[in-house]
Design a protein around this nucleic acid. Structure first.
Length: 344
DNA sequence: AAGTTTAACCGCCAGC
DNA sequence: GAGCTGGCGGTTAAAC
């Protein structure tokens, strides 16, 4: 890529790279995209690689007794090996990915749990895609970790496994050597994040472009937009307040203003946000402002100063820090990655 | 770059 | 007495 960023995240890649073994465990019937998406991303990383030795070796391994893997949409996949076969195979597994179907998410064969446990001692990274988190949860490897899964099943995961902190908002989460991703397509985002970790973020961007993904989404990005939260609330007074907030982002929105607007005390306001939206007023407003600012940047609406003012950040500095906190990049870096004129 | 100030948040308790 | 509300004060994180 032509544009230079001052960040040091772009690693030099060269002759020192080796082939990493990526094993994708599939538990049929699986959501085909959960498997194919990440596999494709690693495959393209191989295809674009300038050297003879590819960076990845991807193996589809089925947890069943035969290599055929059924999928939810009726398309069959052929795994490279069964679990028993891969046990015989020498060589350390670098990264383990777990994909599972919806219906069988809570019925994990004990021998698979044992095997994953054993791998955890030597494997560099263990990842789940979508409801694959339910499989990992049963190994105990997620205990004490912060993880994500498909938003519709986050509550169930948290209920079944109280020792796990489930956050349904990000599209993927890294906690130590455990990586979990949200529904379906976010498996691609997770794979790109792994590729970025191994081969540099610039190379991951090339892979994303080749996949014709408009952008590589950072893990912090919400599974769906803040504004959709509007529909998830029951209390009509809160809905009215949310609409008012959305229309007045550029104004001072502290607890006092909001409490007055809703004609309740600050304390009750905080409780209301917690109960209905599972967040706090300030966090909610910060999320709304951030999302609006992101859209401004993506659409090229004005300079940073103007965007900051228009979206209610006290200064560009405050906006900058907010961006870093949520996305890991500054507004300028965000613009470089996501704005329309970046697409060749 | 580090210290100070401010605001949000939340547990607790009392009152309705 | 259950359930909701609101005030108080300590803690924390971000802004300055």
């Amino acid at each position: 890529m032509k544009r230079n960023t001052s960040s040091s995240t772009i690693k030099a890649v060269g002759a020192t790279t080796r082939t990493r073994r990526i094993v994708v465990i599939v538990r049929p019937p699986v959501d085909a995209l959960d498997v194919i998406g990440p596999a494709e991303a690693f495959g393209i990383a191989n295809r674009l690689w300038p050297e003879m030795q590819p960076p990845y070796q991807v193996e589809l391994v089925t947890s069943g007794s035969e290599r055929f893997v059924s999928s939810e949409i009726g398309i069959g996949l052929h795994a490279h090996a069964t679990l028993d076969e891969v046990k015989e195979k020498p060589g350390r597994i670098d990264t383990l990915l777990i994909a599972s179907g919806l219906d069988n998410r809570n019925e994990v064969q004990p021998r698979l749990i044992d095997w994953i446990h054993k791998q955890a001692e030597t494997t560099r990274r263990i990842c789940s895609i979508c409801v694959g988190a339910f499989t990992l949860a049963q190994t105990g490897l997620l205990d004490g970790k912060r993880v994500t899964t498909h938003w519709a099943l986050a509550d169930e995961l948290a209920r079944l496994h109280p020792r796990i902190t489930v956050d349904p908002r990000p599209i993927w989460i890294q906690d130590g050597h455990i990586y979990t991703s949200a529904g379906i397509s976010s498996g691609i985002d997770l794979a790109l994040a792994l590729i970025a970790e191994d081969l540099g973020s610039e190379y991951a961007m090339r892979v994303a472009k080749s996949l014709v993904l408009f952008m590589r989404r950072p893990g912090g990005q919400a599974q769906f937009s803040e504004s959709l939260k509007l529909q998830s609330t029951r209390a009509p007074s809160l809905q009215r307040l949310q609409l008012w907030i959305a229309e007045h982002l550029n104004q001072e929105l502290n607890l006092e203003v909001l409490a007055d607007k809703a004609a309740i005390s600050r304390r009750t306001l905080i409780r209301l946000f917690k109960k209905e939206l599972n967040t706090t007023p300030a966090k909610y407003i910060e999320g709304m402002r951030l999302e609006a600012a992101k859209q401004d940047i993506e659409l090229g609406n004005g300079d940073m100063q103007g965007i900051a003012r228009h979206r209610g950040f006290h200064s560009v500095d405050v906006m900058r820090r907010t961006f870093i906190r949520h996305t890991g990049v500054t507004p300028t870096q965000y613009a470089e990655r996501f704005s329309l004129d970046q697409v060749e």
